[in-house]
Amino acid sequence: MSTVTRNLRVVRRMTAADIAQQSVYRGAWIIFMLANITMPIISLLIWRTALASGAQLPVDERYVTTYFVLLGFVTMATSSWMAGFLAQDIRMGKLSSWMIRPASLLTGFVANNLSEKFLKLFALVPMIGIVWWIFRDSMNIPAGPGRWVLFALSILLGAMLVFTIDILIASLAFWMDDVSALVQARVIIASVLSGAVVPLALMPSWSRGFVDHQPFRYTVSFPVEIVAGQLTGRELLVGLGIQLGYVVVFAAIARLVWSAGIRAYSAVGA
């Protein structure tokens, strides 16, 4: 059996087990998702007020509304929270027991990521549905399934991108004692550069070249932009190409750093 199929099977089994385990905390997931959509709703209300009181934005009300309604979903779907945990497993020597197992420690984190997102969906989708219904008159809904397919594809790529960035940061724990400051820095920088706080379309024009091409745009903003509008067919294809490129580049670097780390690993507690 090839390594890929074996790993996929391991991930599938671990995901199923994780779902069973995590569904104990159903109430907590609902509360978490409530927190997740609070910020987008606050931003939505603020920017709609600005538009209504005559602010000259480069985007219209429909764009802003669609953007913030979908934002909570996309940030959840592409998120990763493993950097701190993985760094801890490396530092505390939990990695050791995985080195003799027929699968990577990372499969456990993939399974955890997938299972939690699966459960969060059940809490989040109804909430987004309600907000969508409230603002239904000013939502941009693309005709035809084409854009939705690309939306889904782009979310998948975005999730892979965030996950690899997290592996990269956590891998530094092979050499550093404490990566929590780096993890925190990543979260803070990403919140602005990914478009999770303000739509990147509203960033000042002098920053456009940088903002449009930096990797964090492809973790949240780009998938949302596909549905919210404005992207031409060409921009869409170029964007997806850049996104795929970033995934490949970051995956390659993460793989390099991870394997270098494994070699440097000295098994604390063994």
Binding site: I46, S53, G54, A55, Q56, L57, V197, V198, M203, P204
Partner: peptide, 11 residues
């Protein structure tokens, strides 16, 4: 403060 500054760039 970024959203506030951006917002008042438009109005």
């Amino acid at each position: 403060i970024v959203p506030t500054l951006l917002l008042f760039g438009f109005t």
